[in-house]
Design a protein around this nucleic acid. Sequence first.
DNA 1: ATGGTAGCGGTGCTA
Length: 258
Amino acid sequence: MIIATFNVNSVRQRIEHLTRWLQARAPDIVCLQELKCVDDAFPRAEIEALGYNVATHGQKTFNGVAILSRHPMEIEHRGLPGFEDEQARYIEAVVSVPGEAIRVCGIYFPNGNPAPGPKYDYKLAFMKALTAHAEALLKHEEKLVIAGDYNIIPEPRDVKFPEAWVSDALFLPESRAAYRRLLNLGFTDAIRAQSDAAGLYTFWDYQAGAWQRNNGIRIDHLLLSPRAADALKETGIDKDLRAEEKPSDHVPVWCRLG
DNA sequence: ATGGTAGCGGTGCTA
């Protein structure tokens, strides 16, 4: 059972990368972010042809999230419960796999720059609402994965040049503290549960040769409930996609639950 | 010190 997250930076521009990767990695469940299109423009047929059910929550031009699943799924929410939002940043489903159910939340956090300012306030408000919802979900004591682009660098070891990010919304102490409050409810950061290494990046900017210089950051995360963490067997970051022609600036991150 | 790139949509915003 592989669950993955992938910020595609326009699903229409990335459909060939996405379908190649789906065939190679064969994940069971995938959360996508930054679709950058409305639901009717989503390349549904190409993905369904590979055996996936598709649920989208898109919008024109910006944002947009989706869940792909090889197993039957029921959509619980489009939009974060308790948080009025015109931006498409949240989708939640319960996936039925033989013998059990897994709840999957796909999230696309606001970037939050410039900070301070209204965009940063929005980011913190989104985090507060997600934390409240996650706390309620944890009471179900089920396998739960909150996967997506958090736009938060948790620690200095998750960024090549920490000093360059000290006043950035992705690395400000208040952002990192909010992320820790979510984790401290009882979630496990899947990548960190498997490795203490520095330099496990998931994003490299298009600008200034960031990929060639390995000037990266880790901002795409898979947070596991206790029951999901108990089942964690393996994780991976498919960074080879970043070296392809016309790549997304993010790469897929995945975990395997036994 | 600045700008460097990509996507959308048809200009400047978002990242």
